[in-house]
Computed example of a mutant assay.
Amino acid sequence: MSTPAQPAPDDRGIGGNGRSPSDPATDAYVAHRNLLFTVAYEMLGSAADAEDVLQETWLRWNTVDLDIVQDHRAYLVRITTRQALDRLRTLRRRRESYVGPWLPEPLLTSPDVATEVELAEHVSMAMLLVLEALTPIERAVFVLREVFELDYEEISDAVGRTPAAVRQLAYRSRAHVAARRPRGVVSAADTRNALAAFQRAVATGDLQHLLDVLSPDVVFLGDGGGIARAALAPVVGAEAVAAVLSAGLGNLAARSMESAQVNGCPALILRLDGQIDTVLALRMDDGFITGLYSVRNPEKLSRLWRKTTLRR
């Protein structure tokens, strides 16, 4: 009988059981685990798949001779990137048959993520959807260069391309993202005010108040994964989106609603009979809501019982 693989350690110790790290390999892995998770999640948009990638990273890291590794962080990022690239190519094929719009798996994040503006932007629902349009190799290069600020030689080692090729990939992916990223910085006060107004409008079903906070070209995306009821196509335009929200979320007699930080951005969490029913994340541009991302697929809501630590 084969011996079961040792679970990857988390920031509490070996396998998350509270024991202290006991060797240099474990110390290095635990020290960089949150960073590695963020790399994998940025590339995959799925916390569950990111955790699988970290398990694979841990197994490979355990076979490395640390005496020949000069930079533990860079080596771990390289392993994680390669594993995430392999998994991303498989996920792309699966998502082609996904029922309705596909949205990233939402993460409950702490306020410190929102205060680190660049990280909050890069892990937002809006940005992760932009990254979906890149090829897997372009996405890896963009994440490592723009989010984690690795140099071209480090990225070259991680993705198996020459530094010159990496430069070209970085230029191409940066241009694609720049044309689609949020149009302007929104202050924390404007964000709070818009979220509060939106929450009141949804709770009361007041169509006019919804229209007051929605951009004319707002887009609503619903992800039910074929399991939970959700719009099967994007809904575009303030009046159409307000109508969908009024019809779908207006009757909150059996639901509780609370504000939260999801992927570093404002969101509402709706519970039905104590269980999370919907996560509604917002994208803000120029003081108005330009994107609404409603995740109802229960397979994507299981991680929201605790905050996720993200690191650059």
Score class of each variant (00 low, 15 high):
141 V>D: 01
123 V>F: 03
64 V>E: 05
73 R>L: 13
171 Y>R: 13
96 E>V: 13
123 V>Q: 00
90 T>A: 15
121 E>H: 05
58 W>C: 03
82 R>V: 11
50 A>Q: 02
49 D>S: 11
171 Y>I: 15
123 V>W: 00
148 F>R: 10
91 L>C: 13
110 S>M: 09
72 H>R: 10
76 L>P: 05
96 E>M: 13
118 E>C: 08
122 H>S: 13
111 P>L: 06
141 V>E: 02
95 R>I: 01
65 D>Y: 04
58 W>N: 03
137 I>N: 08
43 M>R: 06
128 L>W: 03
121 E>F: 03
153 E>I: 00
44 L>Q: 04
181 R>F: 10
121 E>G: 04
175 A>K: 14
127 M>Q: 12
147 V>Y: 00
163 P>N: 04
94 R>I: 07
46 S>M: 02
42 E>I: 12
113 V>Q: 02
92 R>M: 15
62 N>M: 12
91 L>H: 07
130 V>R: 04
171 Y>K: 13
42 E>W: 07
57 T>A: 10
155 I>K: 00
66 L>S: 01
155 I>D: 01
141 V>F: 05
56 E>R: 15
112 D>Y: 09
155 I>V: 11
66 L>R: 08
93 R>A: 15
43 M>K: 10
177 V>C: 08
155 I>G: 00
69 V>C: 03
77 V>R: 06
178 A>R: 11
63 T>C: 04
67 D>L: 15
41 Y>F: 14
87 R>N: 02
58 W>K: 04
77 V>E: 07
69 V>K: 01
68 I>N: 06
100 G>T: 10
74 A>H: 09
102 W>Q: 09
69 V>W: 00
170 A>N: 08
59 L>H: 06
45 G>Y: 04
50 A>K: 01
110 S>G: 11
77 V>F: 02
128 L>G: 10
93 R>Y: 02
142 F>C: 00
46 S>K: 01
108 L>F: 07
164 A>Y: 09
74 A>L: 11
179 A>H: 12
183 R>P: 06
60 R>Y: 00
65 D>N: 11
110 S>E: 14
128 L>F: 06
105 E>C: 10
116 E>S: 10
50 A>Y: 00
138 E>Y: 03
49 D>Q: 04
132 E>L: 09
56 E>P: 07
146 E>V: 11
146 E>S: 11
107 L>K: 12
169 L>Y: 07
66 L>I: 11
130 V>I: 08
117 V>G: 03
92 R>Q: 15
92 R>I: 12
157 D>A: 14
82 R>P: 12
98 Y>N: 10
51 E>T: 05
100 G>L: 03
175 A>D: 15
139 R>I: 06
153 E>Y: 01
66 L>A: 01
66 L>H: 03
54 L>Q: 13
182 P>N: 06
81 T>N: 02
87 R>C: 07
140 A>M: 10
170 A>D: 09
66 L>T: 12
111 P>K: 03
123 V>A: 04
158 A>M: 00
162 T>S: 14
110 S>Y: 02
96 E>K: 15
161 R>V: 06
119 L>G: 02
57 T>G: 08
183 R>G: 09
98 Y>F: 14
62 N>E: 15
180 R>S: 12
